[in-house]
């Protein structure tokens, strides 16, 4: 139980860093996200730099993690186990992309924007939660 507070602080710190990064990158400006996706229009490739930076840093961390027996404040690394490319992966990603393309919000930036007091982001985020619960209910 003594690890409990450390585990929560890691969660908090991770959320803070991620949120700050999303804001600095421009992901909390839906028009910038849509300009990144609008290859046929006035394309703004900025967010490709954000993706490259994030993937690069995380790749180093993942490499370091594989060389360790356990994380700093938990018993074991919990790597995703699924390995097969299947229909739910492709269908779910396709639906996700359509929603992302309609308004320019994905889950992280939407929650950051709610914190900033955005009413449109609150509409989106509540509906996103309903969509997540709907998925769980559909699995029963």
């Amino acid at each position: 139980m003594s690890m409990n507070i450390e585990v929560r602080l890691v969660g908090l710190g991770s959320g803070l860093l991620l949120g700050a990064g999303l804001m600095l990158a421009g992901m909390t400006r839906p028009e910038k996200v849509l300009a990144f996706l609008d290859v046929a229009g006035e394309w703004d490739p900025s967010l490709a730099f954000a993706m490259a930076g994030a993937i690069g840093v995380f790749a180093i961390a993942a490499f370091a993690a594989r060389a360790r027996l356990r994380p700093l404040w938990a018993e074991a690394f919990q790597w995703p186990e699924a390995a097969l490319v299947d229909a739910p992966l492709v269908l779910g990603s396709a639906l996700f992309g359509i929603g992302w393309g309609i308004v320019g919000y994905c889950p992280g930036p939407a929650i950051v924007s709610v914190g900033a007091g955005s009413i449109p982001a609150a509409w989106f985020t509540v509906a996103m939660g309903v969509g997540m619960v709907a998925y769980r209910l559909s699995r029963r």
Binding site: E6, V7, V10, G11, G13, S14, G15, L16, L17, L18, G19, A20, G21, L22, M23, L24, A25, G26, M27, K32, A35, E42, W43, D44, P45, S46, L47, A48, F49, A50, M51, A52, G53, A54, I55, G56, V57, F58, I60, A61, A62, A64, A65, R68, R70, P71, L72, W73, A74, E75, A76, F77, Q78
Partner: peptide
């Protein structure tokens, strides 16, 4: 076009740092 590669890259590094903290800290 509002091309901002430097803040985007810096933001990306922070996003990567946040994800790395969660992985190396608690394995998630």
């Amino acid at each position: 076009v509002d091309f901002t590669p430097v803040p985007a890259l810096c933001g990306g590094l922070l996003i990567g740092a946040g994800a790395s903290l969660l992985l190396l800290g608690i394995g998630r």
